[in-house]
């Protein structure tokens, strides 16, 4: 019961934040609200018992990406331009997509149901094997770093490639500044 109340409050705040982000024109406020959005999402993940995902969401979505957004904002303008075209086409598109997604959830098994496909495929195998085979109590870490080591190597390479691309595009400020700090 308590968990449902927490979920309802978090989802309501999430929806309010999303609407505020869509309506605001000041991009600084939007970046800050996006950070709040990530923090609320992290709270939801904790309530779904996905602590590793929540941790990542809070650190990356709430922390780093906000700072990077602000860094990008400093290079560009602080106000969003008014849309020159009518916005009802994208609005309709969003509504239809959202309705389709909600329709899709109707067939999904209940959250945490033991007979859900997600609980019956590889999950029992990992739960049974992880501790005796790797000696690592956190199954998420065992799957991430050992059973799915290839994927994580790929992810690390993606981060490396992304950083390299940013460095190639932006450089490290070799350009002389107009005003030096004292």
């Amino acid at each position: 019961m308590n968990e449902i109340a927490v979920d309802i409050v978090l989802l309501a705040l999430l929806a309010a934040t999303a609407i505020a982000i869509a309506r605001l024109r000041n991009l600084f406020a939007v970046a800050m609200l996006a950070s709040v959005f990530s923090l609320l999402a992290a709270g939801l993940f904790v309530s779904l018992d996905a602590v590793d995902v929540a941790f990542t969401e809070a650190a990356v979505g709430g922390g780093i990406s906000t700072v990077l957004m602000l860094g990008a904002l400093a290079l560009t303008t602080r106000e969003e331009k008014k849309a020159s075209r009518p916005t009802w086409v994208p609005l309709l598109l969003c509504a239809v997509t959202g309705a389709a997604l909600i329709y899709g959830t109707l067939d999904m098994p209940r959250f945490g149901a033991a007979d859900a496909p997600a609980q019956q495929h590889v999950a029992p195998d990992y739960i049974a094997r992880a501790m005796p085979e790797t000696g690592v109590p956190n199954i998420v870490t065992a799957v991430l770093a050992s059973y799915r080591g290839y994927d994580t190597l790929g992810e690390t390479t993606v981060i490396f490639a992304a950083a390299t691309a940013v460095l190639l595009l932006l450089g490290f400020g070799r350009r002389k500044r107009g005003k030096e700090r004292e």
Binding site: L68, A163, F172, G173, K179
Partner: peptide, 17 residues
């Protein structure tokens, strides 16, 4: 390393605000 590098790259471009 990547996060510090990306941040430095962004922050070095903008003049102090």
């Amino acid at each position: 390393g990547a996060m510090v590098a990306i941040f430095t790259a962004f922050a070095s471009r903008a003049p102090e605000i």
